[in-house]
Amino acid sequence: MIGWELALDIVSWIVFATGGVAVVVGALGLVRFPDFYTRLHAAGVTDTAGAELMILGMLLQAFSPEYDNSWQIAGKLGLLALLQFLLSPVATHAIAHAGWMVGFKPLAGADLRYEGDGE
């Protein structure tokens, strides 16, 4: 019979692995994507999937018998997840809007050209 501790560890491993992949792939997109507006989307992957999955993994690990105040740790992690959920889109929108107001033009269309450019 598998103890619940081992099951917890296995689930945490899966969650941490998925979250780690999301964080690294998001950062990779931040480096690879061609212009400012497309990079915003890559940063969004890190901010949502990456961060929330990592926090979920820590939340699962908080219930391992190592810690005697599991519920407080879990509550703090829940608060952290909620803050991340509410604040990260505001920050991303602020950056996008600031760039838009200064007059950044986005690349457009499948051939990635600035609007109005000739051949």
Partner: peptide, 26 residues
């Protein structure tokens, strides 16, 4: 609504007006 658009990767709300939102899609 604007935050939900930004939170979903692939769409970012760029400019929020009273009745419409300018969205950048990937």
């Amino acid at each position: 609504f604007a935050n939900s658009i930004t939170l979903t990767p692939g769409t970012v709300s760029v400019h929020v007006r009273e009745n419409e939102i300018l969205v950048h899609g990937l």
